[in-house]
Design a protein around this nucleic acid. Structure first.
Length: 418
RNA sequence: CGGGGUGUAGUACAACGGUAGUAUGCAUGCUUUGGGAGCAUGAGACUCGGGUUCAAUUCCCGGCACCCCGACCA
């Protein structure tokens, strides 16, 4: 990708009003644009990151047998009336169409997925089954805030699993928990599994929480074994002994990046989702649901991975692998050479499978280029200039490190591969 | 939804009851090129409604939007 053609704009300054780090950096770097509180456009750089997060999630959901589908965001009132949630979910965006027909924008999809799965399940042989989607959810939050962390429209991966009995749900639930931990590890997030309230469905659920000052949840976690509980259900305070080991419980703020629930039969009852077991008896399917918010995850990564100059993306989610920068001088002849070397390097890197953003702009000063590069947070920065050209080399720097290395042109690929 | 704060050029800020200023970005020209360059010229703004006043961007009331705290967050 040529930076001269990239649809973006960076800024040095941002309003003092914008306190949230993720909103500041993502807006300044031109990854997202705010349309209104809690509603953002994803620009090319931001969209690339979002898609990479989704890719990791897809891979891990597929690995535990999840099948991707896409349900409508526009949903009919009737389905919500069946579960009584038309009136109890107060963040539901409701609207009226022609003829007075009422709809809601999906804030969660149990009301849609349950009747859908009912059409496919008649026998115990049809179970278990797990389907998921990645879609924008709509919630009329009374207070959207903190950039991508709490939005009114936000990206959500929601997986729903259906089982013949609770034992099977329990074992799948554990599998899903493992898959979630893999997802967050790959995304560069150190997520704690936190025991939390189960809402109206069951006594407990599990949240995946990332410790950071900008979090809005308060959790207690063991410094030793990482056992953790959300403060809303915790029966002890900071400094108390861990119930699982001899460690001490610490208190901390955290961002919830995922949540898994055992729904049991609440929705299968409402929609009469039953099947015939081996004895030919009618039974209700047992359900679980599992959510991760990719857009919130993106915000959370920025919150925990940045410095005073900008974002530092973990390799799996960076918009590009390499930021190749050409620095031009006043000598036309040398500039031609710089351009030729840079373009050659770009081509060979791309052939080798690297995604490269190439800063090919001639009229832009070195300071601006470096400043933007730091702000973008691409893991590797390669610079070609008059200086490096003299040594037939390219300068390589990792975003997260201070160290700079000069590497000969013909050895760059090999250097990057390791 | 309760409390607090803020609304002025594309962006970030300032001032002011009477003619709105700075920086940056943008356009043009020249100079410049390893950490957000310099000079010159140019285009570019008072959130909406009501009130007070000879006169309101400025003061008062209300709406709306945004930010923060709290409540809420199947």
């Amino acid at each position: 990708m040529l930076q001269s053609k990239l649809f973006y704009k960076t800024t040095k300054e941002i309003s003092e009003e914008e306190k949230s780090i993720n909103a500041q950096l993502l807006v300044r770097a031109g990854f997202v644009d705010k349309l209104m509180a809690g509603v953002y456009s994803f620009l090319p750089l931001g969209l690339r990151v979002l898609e990479k997060i989704k890719k990791v999630i897809r891979e891990e959901m597929n690995a535990i047998g999840g099948q991707e589908i896409l349900m409508p965001a526009l949903t009919p009132k009737e389905n919500w009336m069946k579960t009584g949630r038309w009136d109890t979910i107060d963040v539901l965006f409701k609207m009226e169409g022609s003829g007075g027909k009422e709809y809601a924008l999906g804030s969660t999809h149990e009301e849609i997925v349950t009747p859908l799965v009912k059409k496919m399940v008649n026998s115990y042989k049809d179970l278990p089954v797990a389907v998921y989607q990645i879609q924008d959810k709509f919630r009329d939050e009374p207070r959207a805030k903190s950039g991508l962390l709490r939005g009114r429209e936000f990206s959500m991966k929601d997986l729903y699993s259906f089982h013949a009995d609770e034992t099977d749900l329990d074992s799948y639930y554990e599998k899903a928990k493992g898959a979630y931990l893999k997802v967050f590890r790959r995304l560069g997030l150190d997520a704690l599994v936190v025991l939390a309230s189960g809402g109206t469905f069951s006594k407990y659920s599990h949240e995946f929480q990332v410790l950071t000052e900008s979090g809005e949840d308060m959790i207690f976690y063991c410094e030793k074994c990482r056992y953790a509980q959300n403060k809303e259900i915790a029966e002890y305070g900071a400094g108390d002994k861990c119930p699982k080991c001899d460690g001490k419980m610490l208190e901390g703020k955290a961002i919830e990046v995922g949540n898994i629930f055992k729904l049991k039969t609440k929705f299968s009852e409402a929609f009469d989702l039953n099947f015939l077991d081996k004895e030919g008896k009618k039974k209700l399917a047992v359900m679980g649901c599992y959510g991760i918010g990719p857009s919130r995850v993106m915000g959370a990564i920025v919150e925990v991975s940045h410095d005073e100059r900008g974002i530092i993306w973990p390799a799996e989610v960076a918009p590009f692998d390499v930021h190749l920068i050409a620095l031009f001088g006043k000598d036309e002849g040398k500039n031609k050479k710089i351009e030729k070397e840079a373009e050659g390097l770009l081509e060979s890197l791309q052939k080798a499978g690297f995604e490269v953003l190439y800063d090919d702009r001639e009229e832009v000063s070195a300071g601006v280029k470096f400043g933007e590069s730091d702000l973008f947070g691409i893991p590797l920065r390669l610079v070609i200039s008059e200086k490096t050209l003299e040594k037939s080399s390219v300068e390589i720097k990792e975003r997260a490190e201070q160290r700079v290395e000069l590497v000969k042109f013909n050895k760059v690929e090999k250097f990057l591969k390791k």
